[in-house]
């Protein structure tokens, strides 16, 4: 009885976890620019991996693998924001975004100030009037 219940719960977790990957795939294709695609890509990274690892732990029914599963999920949880931050930063600096889709842009003032400081220090008229680079 209990085994059947655990099997059903694990199966549900697996299907939902795989649907997270599908959502990421559809989001990658359908969303308009880099930042929104970044949003879609984090779905399987955190919740999807958690559900699949939980299903694995439920099916194996052993406490010995639990630390390894927790380590895998924690590593993903720690590294996903860092890599997403780096990609988003690089995307903003190289203007891979649609500005009309943004509601608030708090980074614009910071970048503007940094460019002005750069110009004052080095006298270099950098890339102020570049056009946005979007597909």
């Amino acid at each position: 009885m209990l085994d059947t219940v655990i099997d059903i719960v694990a199966g549900t977790f697996m299907i939902v976890g795989c649907l997270m990957s599908l959502a990421a795939g559809i989001g990658m294709l359908r969303f308009p620019d880099l930042l929104s695609r970044l949003h879609a890509a984090t779905k399987p990274q955190v919740l999807g991996l958690f559900l699949l690892l939980a299903a694995l732990g439920l099916e194996l029914r052993s406490w010995a693998v639990l630390p390894v599963l927790a380590l895998a999920w924690l590593l993903q949880l720690l590294t996903a924001p860092v890599s997403a931050h780096m990609v988003g930063r690089a995307g903003y600096r190289t203007r891979h975004l649609k500005r009309e889709t943004l509601i608030a842009d708090e980074l614009a003032a910071v970048v503007e100030a940094a460019e002005q400081r750069e110009e004052a220090e080095h006298g270099r008229n950098g890339n102020r009037d570049r056009a946005d680079f979007i597909d």
Binding site: C18, S21, L22, G25
Partner: peptide, 9 residues
């Protein structure tokens, strides 16, 4: 599901 997701990616 994973095959479709992989194809889309």
């Amino acid at each position: 599901t994973l095959s479709i997701a992989g194809a889309l990616a």
